[in-house]
C-alpha cells in the first residue's frame, strides 16, 4: 500500500490549509482533523475512480493526489495573507525550528508541542497495531480470506488509512510532506529485508526508524544540512546495510 501512503502525504495539504483557516495557527487540532479527512477523501476518490470508472490503480492515484495537492497549493496562495504557512516549510519541514515553536507546560516541564503530538501519535499507533494488527496482516496478505474469516476488510483498512493520514500530518510539521513518504516506507522495507515474519518486521522497522532518526540528527549537525533530509539519507544508509545483508543471505528474502 505504499502507493496509498505516497498519495496521502500529498493529499493532506488541502486539509491542512482548511484546518489552518479554521483554527488560526499551526498547532490547532483542526489541522490534524482536516488532514485526516483530506487523506481519507483522497483514498475514497481513488477507490471510486478504480471501481466505478475502471481506471487502473496507478492512474487513479495519479489524478487524485495531484488534484488534491493542486487545491491545497491554490488555497495556500489565495489565502496567503491569512495563512502563516510557508510553502517552503511544507516541502522541507522545519524540524529545527519546530522545537522552538509552541510549547505546552506539563508538570513544570516545558515540552515542545510537536513532541507531544508526536508522542501521542506513537501511543495511538502502538495501540492500533495491537488491536488491528492481525486483521491488517491477513487483509494485506489475502483480502478474500480475510473476508471469509469475517474480518470486515473495509473498516480495518479505513482505520489504517486514517491513522496513516494522522501520522503524516504530525510528521508534516517536522519533516515535510514528501519526506513523510520515506518515514512510511523505509522502516517497513528494512524490516522486510531482514526479518522473516511479521512481528520481526515490525520490530526491525521500529529499530530502523529510531536509528535513522538519531544518525540523521548527527549527520545534519555535522554536515550542516536540513535535518529531515539527513534522516532520510541516514535511513537509506541503514537500508543499504540491510539490503547487503539480505543479498548475502541468498537474495529475494530466500
Amino acid at each position: 500500500m505504499a502507493l496509498a501512503g505516497d498519495a496521502i502525504t500529498h493529499s493532506v495539504l488541502p486539509g491542512i490549509v482548511a484546518g489552518f483557516l479554521l483554527g488560526g495557527s499551526l498547532d490547532s487540532p483542526w489541522l490534524l482533523l482536516g488532514a485526516a479527512l483530506a487523506g481519507l477523501a483522497c483514498v475514497l476518490l481513488i477507490e471510486f475512480l478504480h471501481h466505478t470508472l475502471a481506471l487502473r490503480e496507478d492512474a487513479a492515484t495519479g489524478i487524485a493526489f495531484t488534484t488534491f495537492f493542486a487545491v491545497g497549493v491554490l488555497g495556500l496562495r489565495l489565502f496567503a495573507s491569512k495563512i502563516d504557512l510557508d510553502p517552503d516549510c511544507v516541502i522541507f519541514g522545519s524540524l529545527e525550528t519546530v522545537v522552538h515553536g509552541a510549547r505546552l507546560s506539563f508538570r513544570s516541564m516545558q515540552v515542545p508541542a510537536a513532541f507531544v503530538s508526536g508522542a501521542g501519535a506513537v501511543v495511538v499507533g502502538v495501540l492500533a497495531v495491537m488491536v488491528f494488527g492481525r486483521r491488517w496482516t491477513i487483509g494485506a496478505f489475502d483480502p478474500l480470506h480475510a473476508r471469509c474469516l469475517g474480518f470486515e476488510d473495509g473498516r480495518a483498512r479505513a482505520v489504517l488509512l486514517g491513522w496513516t493520514a494522522m501520522m503524516v500530518t504530525s510528521a508534516f510539521q517536522s519533516v515535510g510532506a514528501i519526506l513523510a513518504v520515506a518515514l512510511l516506507v523505509q522502516p517497513g522495507a528494512c524490516g522486510l529485508l531482514v526479518a522473516r515474519r511479521v512481528p520481526g518486521v515490525l520490530i526491525v522497522a521500529g529499530l530502523h526508524s529510531v536509528l535513522s532518526a538519531l544518525c540523521g540528527f548527527y549527520l545534519a549537525w555535522f554536515a550542516a544540512i536540513n535535518a529531515a533530509s539527513a534522516m532520510v539519507l541516514a535511513g537509506f544508509a541503514w537500508l543499504c546495510i540491510a539490503w547487503g545483508y539480505s543479498l548475502l543471505r541468498g537474495g529475494r528474502g530466500a
Binding site: M1, A2, L3, G5, D6, I91, F92, I178, L179, V181, A182, L184, V185, Q186, G188, A189, L192, A223, A224, I225, N226, A228, S229, A230, V232, L233, F236, L239
Partner: peptide, 21 residues
C-alpha cells in the same frame, strides 16, 4: 511501489540536503 517510494524519497532528500547546504 515500495521500491519507488524509497528511491523517490532518498533522491529527493539528497536534493533537499544539497539545497539546504
Amino acid at each position: 511501489d515500495a521500491a519507488l517510494g524509497i528511491v523517490l524519497s532518498v533522491f529527493f532528500a539528497l536534493g533537499l540536503a544539497m539545497i539546504s547546504k
